[in-house]
Simulated scan of single mutants.
Amino acid sequence: MIEFIDVHVHLRTGDKARLEADPYVISNPEGLSDHPDAMAEMYRELNGMAVVFDIDDETRTGLKVSNAEIAEWVAKYPDVFIGFGSVDPWKGKAAITEVERCADLGLRGIKFHPSVQDFAPNDPRFDPLWETCQRLGLAILLHTGTTMAAAGQPGGGGIRLDYGRPIPYIDDIAARFPELRIIMAHPAWPWHEEQLAILRHKPNVYMDLSGWAPKYIPQTVIQYANSLIQDKVFFGSDFPMLTPHRWLREFADLPLKDTVRPKILRDNAARFFGLQLNDQ
């Protein structure tokens, strides 16, 4: 029986698969393998599923990723993996073509990291991306809040944190593309209050709780997840930065209603992806 759906899991492809570690992901301290075969086995043992993706930031890093490889891993482990593609928004028409190819590959959404990819999501020049995703029924997963990518490097590696701010960037997109399903990745600290406002105001916007050990999630996020936005919040770990083991252990200690806990762990994501699980 599937007990949880982790909507935020990094899988390295293309050039990144040949690196010792993803330069933008802090390896998990428990030392668990991030090889897709090992990840599939880990989630299967935990009775979970995982949304897997890479991040196409070739303009910034020169590293190529492969959405085809994501699709291949999903085909190999369809009982465990749900696939998202990723495109570099600076590739223009090629990015649009790649979004369309992701849909043809059976991927369910597209992952973006505005701070790492160095773009303002609400810039009108990127509207064709959102229009294409909306037309094809592909969800988008957008990083929000601060990031540990390049943290501590001179100038933060040139990464601008403000591109992860929910207002105006996410709010503008949600308003202009009301049929586009948007997941805000992570509690958007230090702008999590803006994030909560969008979740209350825009029916097409959701959030995941990835990247934060549950005991550190801002209290207002927990309060709203336990009440007003309980149907719009997903479990996410951010593996391999944070393991699902630790996240699930700490999540069990949060002061959540018994009716809310299964929604966050599984039911909200199952409904979002149209999954018919055995016991539902």
Score class of each variant (00 low, 15 high):
residue 173 I to Q: 02
residue 28 N to C: 11
residue 166 P to G: 04
residue 234 F to Q: 11
residue 88 D to L: 00
residue 22 D to V: 05
residue 137 G to R: 10
residue 67 N to Y: 12
residue 158 G to L: 04
residue 91 K to Q: 15
residue 266 R to S: 07
residue 2 I to S: 08
residue 62 G to K: 14
residue 76 K to R: 15
residue 153 Q to K: 14
residue 233 V to S: 11
residue 18 R to G: 07
residue 39 M to W: 06
residue 215 K to N: 10
residue 12 R to E: 06
residue 201 H to D: 15
residue 44 R to I: 04
residue 115 S to D: 02
residue 78 P to F: 11
residue 244 P to F: 04
residue 22 D to H: 05
residue 176 R to Q: 08
residue 183 I to K: 06
residue 93 K to I: 06
residue 266 R to C: 15
residue 31 G to I: 09
residue 234 F to D: 09
residue 191 W to Y: 14
residue 150 A to F: 14
residue 3 E to D: 13
residue 38 A to P: 05
residue 69 E to Y: 01
residue 202 K to H: 15
residue 275 L to W: 11
residue 207 M to V: 13
residue 263 K to N: 12
residue 147 T to M: 05
residue 125 R to N: 03
residue 83 G to M: 07
residue 164 G to M: 07
residue 280 Q to E: 14
residue 10 H to Q: 05
residue 225 A to W: 01
residue 14 G to P: 12
residue 50 A to R: 10
residue 121 P to Y: 07
residue 16 K to V: 14
residue 102 C to R: 00
residue 60 R to E: 14
residue 18 R to K: 13
residue 54 D to P: 05
residue 256 L to Q: 11
residue 208 D to G: 04
residue 113 H to I: 10
residue 219 Q to I: 14
residue 112 F to P: 02
residue 205 V to W: 01
residue 63 L to D: 12
residue 230 Q to C: 15
residue 31 G to R: 01
residue 101 R to A: 12
residue 49 M to R: 15
residue 39 M to Y: 06
residue 164 G to P: 01
residue 169 Y to Q: 09
residue 78 P to L: 11
residue 72 E to G: 08
residue 210 S to P: 05
residue 96 I to F: 04
residue 87 V to F: 01
residue 160 R to Q: 12
residue 211 G to T: 00
residue 143 H to S: 04
residue 127 D to Y: 13
residue 69 E to A: 07
residue 157 G to Y: 02
residue 192 H to S: 08
residue 5 I to D: 06
residue 96 I to D: 12
residue 73 W to G: 01
residue 164 G to F: 04
residue 185 A to F: 01
residue 131 E to N: 05
residue 80 V to R: 11
residue 162 D to Y: 12
residue 67 N to I: 09
residue 19 L to R: 01
residue 52 V to R: 01
residue 54 D to C: 13
residue 78 P to I: 00
residue 239 F to P: 08
residue 227 S to M: 12
residue 118 D to R: 10
residue 102 C to K: 06
residue 217 I to P: 08
residue 79 D to K: 11
residue 160 R to P: 05
residue 52 V to G: 11
residue 119 F to Q: 04
residue 250 E to F: 00
residue 195 Q to A: 03
residue 11 L to E: 02
residue 64 K to A: 15
residue 150 A to R: 14
residue 206 Y to F: 15
residue 267 D to S: 14
residue 10 H to N: 06
residue 44 R to L: 03
residue 18 R to N: 14
residue 218 P to W: 13
residue 267 D to K: 14
residue 35 H to C: 04
residue 175 A to Q: 13
residue 171 D to F: 00
residue 12 R to H: 00
residue 78 P to M: 11
residue 273 F to M: 13
residue 179 E to S: 09
residue 249 R to Y: 15
